[in-house]
């Protein structure tokens, strides 16, 4: 489906991502259990890496959109932007699903309208709008409109990321006290999910390129 170096690198990227995820799962199984929260704390090893990957994905969308707008409509950058945005949405969904399970144990509630949770949910909904608008505008202006959205919507990601610092009294912790083993496991998990993000992005790019090729053939 994908030609060139991108297609050739795909299996290696997947092997790397899977190997790193296996290391991460080994670390999660062997990391010490937190004294107060118990095993529920192990949600951190998927929650934080998924959030990191989501913010990274939206940042890539932001950069690719800017490059598209500046570089005189290089359509490859539009493909990167939309592919990265979609994967960012999936990572965000994992964050939104794993968060309440942790909150239930830590705060005794599934959901609370505190700044980080609210801004993250709003960000997710807004990026959902990116796809809604992209699919509803005419093919001629689709890329331009998407690029503008990719830039503008990144404001919501910045607000979400900095919400813990901006609004005092936020329930969501800025950092969690961890032992060196826990910190190491979290670091490995973050890198593993970032490798997974890159592999998924290449996979999704292949689909986008095939779609564009077919659209060109049909014209």
């Amino acid at each position: 489906m994908t030609s060139g170096w991108l297609g050739k690198s795909r299996p290696y990227l997947w092997w790397l991502a899977v190997a790193m995820l296996l290391c991460s799962f080994w670390g999660i199984a062997h990391a010490p259990t937190e004294a107060q929260m118990g095993t529920v704390q192990k949600i951190i090893y998927i929650h934080v890496p998924s959030a990191t990957a989501a913010y990274t994905a939206f940042f890539v969308t932001f950069v690719a959109s800017i490059v598209y707008l500046v570089s005189g409509k290089g359509r490859r950058w539009d493909q990167v932007a939309v592919s990265s945005c979609e994967i960012g949405m999936v990572f965000s969904a994992v964050v939104l699903v794993s968060g309440p399970l942790w909150a239930r144990s830590a705060w005794n509630t599934w959901w609370t309208w505190e700044p980080r949770l609210t801004s993250f949910l709003i960000m997710w909904i807004l990026y959902g709008g990116y796809f809604l608008i992209r699919s509803s505008v005419s093919p001629g202006s689709r890329r331009d409109v998407s690029a503008v959205l990719g830039v503008v919507l990144f404001v919501s990601a910045i607000v979400s990321y900095l919400s813990v610092a901006w609004w005092r009294g936020s329930l969501h912790p800025r950092s969690v006290t961890m032992t060196p083993e826990m910190r190491m496991t979290l670091t490995i998990s973050i890198f593993a999910w970032l490798a997974f993000y890159v592999a998924a992005l290449v996979e999704r790019l292949g689909l986008e390129r095939t779609r564009e090729r077919i659209e060109e053939q049909a014209r």
């Binding site: 998927i46 699903v97 399970l101 942790w102 144990s105």
Partner: peptide, 8 residues
């Protein structure tokens, strides 16, 4: 909860 989070 941890198992459910990973399963989801």
């Amino acid at each position: 909860y941890a198992v459910v989070a990973y399963a989801l």
